[in-house]
């Protein structure tokens, strides 16, 4: 199969992720969009690794997965805490950390 197709798919997924982050208010959805972007990047890495026949891309993809997992742990914890205190998961209402 043409490797370009993988890359195009990755770009589409990434764009959906960006769109989700920018327009959605619900923190969980934003979070999922971020995950989508990370996985789009992973897809690109894996495709590139397959194409070149080296392991480098695969290694980076594993790294990204680990980082994403760690991020989910911390991020979800924060979101849950915010939801508990504010009864809302809207990120526009939580703008405490400004100026």
């Amino acid at each position: 199969m043409n490797p370009n197709n993988y890359l195009i798919l990755a770009a589409i997924l990434f764009t959906i992720g960006v769109y989700g982050v920018l327009v959605r208010r619900n923190a969980i959805i934003v979070f999922m969009s971020v995950e989508l972007m990370l996985n789009a990047a992973n897809l690109a890495f894996v495709a590139a690794a397959r194409n070149t026949g080296t392991l480098d891309g695969l290694v980076v993809a594993f790294f990204v997965m680990v980082v994403a997992a760690a991020e989910v742990v911390v991020g979800l914890a924060i979101i849950v805490t915010i939801f508990r205190t504010r009864r809302s998961a809207s990120i526009d209402e939580a703008s405490l950390m400004k100026y």
Binding site: V21, L22, V23, V30, D92, S95, Y99
Partner: peptide
């Protein structure tokens, strides 16, 4: 310049984009 730090995650994301 401080005013740019408005605390809205999505505006930060837009700036990043």
């Amino acid at each position: 310049a401080r005013r740019l730090q408005n605390g809205f995650v999505r505006s930060y994301a837009l700036t990043m984009l």
